[in-house]
């Protein structure tokens, strides 16, 4: 039982990581209707850029700021070069464009910073929390708890941003109705740039935590892809959905690997989230939080 709880908690905490990436997807999808396949590549690029700046001798806060600046520039350039010319194209075209963007970002990031695997040090140790270990005998990593804390903080910040700033409110309006948003007086393009910058920030935070956990390498992009099944569970437009979906995927994936994996040869976490999302889709195509929708004709 203790072991079960440990696995479950570990899964939940790694699920938080998926939620991070899914969050970036949701932000962009809500504001621009673009399904941004490149979000995973952005996580990788952000982490690599941060490490790269640190290697150049920048102290932590400066490297963080510089990496953030790079992500903002990336967002602005993407809006100008990719999104604006494709406005009003079918969503699937935009989706394919973001697959192209994925390649560009990965190529650029590796071209500039090199392709070798790096470590990323945040100064938090990956050891079990002592008092929890002592009192219950359950091992939970300090680092994972820290990651969950950061996630909670980030979601709170985003919620405040959406609730209390003019731009945040405009973003929410855009999600509901593009025309209405225009009447607020903020150009759609500005909104898109901001939302890509915010998504870039989320990617940076995700990249830092993930990079510190598993190292910064190309495989990060595959892990980040698991945000896709998370989105299927949680729906493309729901922030709580992204969080809950991430937790579900993270925990079931770990439980499945531990309890089923040994019977089938292991490594099932490469596909388990996808198959689970698929099974889920068949039962509830509208997602956990989505509403049933009938095409109007």
């Amino acid at each position: 039982m203790q072991f079960f709880i440990e696995v479950l908690l570990g899964g939940l905490l790694s699920g938080v990581m998926y939620s991070f990436v899914a969050l970036g997807f949701v932000l962009i999808y809500k504001a621009s209707g673009v399904f941004n396949f490149a979000q995973g590549a952005m996580v990788f690029a952000a982490a690599l850029t941060f490490v790269g700046f640190q290697e150049m001798g920048l102290p932590f806060p400066a490297a963080l700021l510089a990496a953030f600046a790079v992500m903002v520039v990336l967002g602005i350039v993407t809006e100008r070069v990719v999104l604006r010319p494709l406005v009003n194209q079918p969503p699937i075209t935009l989706f394919m464009a973001t697959i192209g963007l994925t390649y560009v970002i990965e190529g650029l990031a590796q071209g500039v910073w090199g392709a070798n695997v790096r470590g990323l040090e945040l100064g938090i140790e990956d050891v079990p929390v002592q008092w929890l270990m002592d009192s219950t005998g359950i091992g939970v990593s300090t680092f994972d708890l820290f990651g969950a804390g950061v996630a909670a903080l980030l979601v709170t910040l985003l919620a405040l941003f959406f609730q209390y700033t003019r731009i945040g409110r405009a973003l929410r309006a855009v999600a509901d109705d593009h025309q209405a948003a225009l009447s607020i007086g903020i150009p759609l393009q500005t909104i898109w740039r901001i939302v890509w910058a915010v998504a870039g920030f989320v990617a940076l935070v995700a990249g830092l935590i993930w990079g510190a956990r598993n190292g910064v390498s190309f495989s990060l992009t595959f892990t980040a892809l698991k945000a896709l099944p998370v989105l299927i569970l949680g729906g493309f437009t729901s922030i709580p959905g992204a969080i809950v979906g991430g937790l579900i995927i993270g925990s079931t994936e770990k439980l499945a690997e531990v309890y089923l994996g040994e019977y089938v040869g292991g490594g099932i976490d490469s596909w388990f989230p996808y198959v689970m999302a698929l099974a889920f889709l068949l039962v509830r195509p509208e997602g956990l939080f989505g509403e049933k929708h009938i095409d109007r004709v």
């Binding site: 464009a97 697959i99 192209g100 994925t102 560009v104 990965e106 190529g107 650029l108 590796q110």
Partner: peptide, 10 residues
């Protein structure tokens, strides 16, 4: 190659 591929797609 990655950059050119991706760029061409876009």
């Amino acid at each position: 190659q990655l950059i050119v591929f991706g760029g061409l797609i876009i």
